[in-house]
Amino acid sequence: MTAALATRGLGKRYGRRWALSGCTLEVPAGHVAGLVGPNGAGKTTLLQLAVGLIEPSAGSIAVLGEEVAATPAQLARVGFVAQDTPLYPSLSVADHLRLGAALNPSWDQALAEARIARLGLDRAQRAGTLSGGQCAQLALTLAIAKRPELLVLDEPVASLDPLARREFLQALMEFTAEHTVSVLLSSHLVADLERVCDYLILLAEGHVQLSGEVDELLASHRRLSGPRRDISRLPSSQQVIEETHTDRQSTLLIRTEEPIIDPAWMVEEVSLEDIVLAHMGRDWTHEPDAVPRVGR
C-alpha cells in the first residue's frame, strides 16, 4: 500500500533557522495520524510542506505516492484545513459551497448539503458571523466534500470550546468511518488526539522524536518502579526513556519489545500522554543515534 506521507531527510529553513530538519517518516495510508509537539516544534511547517504551500529546503516528501502539488490531479487528492479554519467572512455559507463546487473537480454536493443541514447552519448567514465551532465545521465540510484521499488539519480544535471540540472530532471520525481516507492532524495537546488517532508522530525542536502505531507504542512502553538500580545494568532490550531516582527507589519509563521478568520491578502500563511527555523530556544529545542539531 502506498504511504499517505513519506519523507526523507526533509528540512525547511527560514533564514538561518531550521524550522524542521532531518525529518524521515512513513505514515501508512488508512490511518488517522496525530502530529503532536509543543508550540514551535515544526508541526505547521511539516503540514504546509505536505500540502505544497511551501517548498522543502532539504530532502524529499511524497504524499499518496506522488510529488506534492505537482499536478492539479494531485492537489485534488489532498484536503487541507489550515490553522484557525480560515473562511471568507463576507461570503455566506451557500457562497462557500458554491466556491467549493466551482474549485474542486471531485466535489460532492450531496455530502456538503447533508452536513450543512445536519449542522443546522443558515445558508444565507455570512461566515464572519458564525461561532468558532460553526466556522470549524464549515471548514471541515468544505475539506471533506472535496472527497480527498488525504485530509490534513492544522490544530483544528485548538481554539474550540470543549463541546465544539467534541462535535468537530465526532464529525471527523464519522467521515473516516464512512470513506476510505487518511487523516493527518496536529495538536499541541495529546489529550485532544488520544482517542481519535491510531498513529502518532511526535515533533520537538524541529525533529521527529517518535513515530508509530499507537497500539504498538502503548504495548512497548512500561513504567518500572523498584529498589534503586544502576540503569547501565538493565537488559540491552530495555531502552530507558525517562528515569528518576531517590536514594532508595528507581522509577523508569522504558521501551522494550520483551516481557519484563525481573521480579524486583513493579510494572505498570502507561498512557499515550505519559509516553509523549517522556520522549519530549529526553536529552537527545547523549543518544548514539541522535539526529545532529542543525542551525542552533
Partner: peptide, 15 residues
C-alpha cells in the same frame, strides 16, 4: 454500527 459508535464517542473507527 461502527459509524454510529465513532460519531457518538469521537473515537477512531479502528478502535
Amino acid at each position: 454500527t461502527v459509524k454510529d459508535v465513532v460519531a457518538r464517542l469521537a473515537i477512531n473507527p479502528n478502535t
